[in-house]
Design a protein around this nucleic acid. Sequence first.
DNA 1: TTTCCACAGGAATAAAGGGCGA
DNA 2: TCGCCCTTTATTCCTGTGGAAA
Length: 404
Amino acid sequence: MYLSNNNHSMTDLSFSPSSSIFEQREALLEEWTPDELVGRDDELQRYHAALQPVINNESPSNIFLYGKSGVGKTAATRYLLQTLKRDAADVDNLDLHTVEINCDGLNSSYQAAVALVNELRDPATQISNTGYPQASVYQFLFEELDAISGTVLIVLDEVDHIRDDSLLYKLPRARSNGDVTQAKLGVIGISNDLDFRNQLSSKVRSSLCEKEVSFSAYDAQELQLVLEQREQVAFKPDILDDGVVQMCAAYGAKDSGDARQALDLLLEAGDLARERNDELVTEAHVSEARKRLQTDQVVEGIRNYSNHGQFVLYALTILAEEDETPARTKDILRAYERVATENAMDPVSLRSVRDYLGELDQLGIISSTEFNRGKGGGKYKEHELEQSVSSVKTGLSEILDATP
DNA sequence: TTTCCACAGGAATAAAGGGCGA
DNA sequence: TCGCCCTTTATTCCTGTGGAAA
């Protein structure tokens, strides 16, 4: 494509600052930390109690936070640690440090340990993600922690992404095992997976989950408090139509009690109004924003999915178009083998297709139901698309364009 | 109560790929 | 360059599951 100077009429794509309805749009973004956390009083109280030993300069407890995504676990952690650091400055002989990593994208204890080392080291001496024996990486980590000394709180956000528990076993025991002598360590594990705690081996569970704080989903009233707090900072006065905040809160509470989702919805509705130069954000904007967000999520999720996974989904999409869904795993396998072969790919095995279908189900792109027809029919699963064929196809556009 | 079906999914293992130190 | 150590993705094998039918 090139830019030309001809006279063909075309859409005006020049940029100019539009009259904004936003005062401080960032206040609707996830990373914005409010001065006060609303709607989480019970949780904050229990969390606060669990952190109390730190300020008494005792060995910190290991704390495990669990609750669905977007219910304020990370925000509460940031908020309380900020407060704790501030108060710790006034306590004699208390030297408090915090390290926070997000374990999203880190599949193993090894990778998480590397991430921690790199978080603690300066950019010049960072280590790479592979190549070192596991013992060396732990050695680096303990050396860095000892070098800090004092009390060190290690926050492992989305800790359920780590598939093995060797790091979760080692960290809480580092001091008693003599791996660390100077620093007093406390581990704060944060998990979205409610079942993660039960999957841990009992040794790990007893040490990591010394103190537990569960975060319940926000109900509509609590979400409304959160949204109102952000709205006042984010938007200019009297920009939101009556009922907009309530509507976002109601959708948020209905979907999953996820504040992040409700905030995204309000942000998208605001963006939509701004795009159209509307002076007010209305309920109609919210409805449309909701549709847009749902499609975007699906399309993005599919685009980033592995090649074979996309072909498995494509096979199911074809069956859906032929009105043959819900379809059993073996039927999807046949359709998948056909499209993979047509595209000059070696199809993966039935076992792998099962794994892909399981992942797609978890992503909410398809839904799977188990059936049991007893002695004659046995037990099996049926799958169907959970999203519209058109949005799935948009996500699959890369492989569809290449399909002969 | 026992049997049986049609899988689902866990466990073990292999292959390929990539960074590191010697 | 080579061997080591890790990752990711795949395969094979096999046990577990649970409700209808016998």
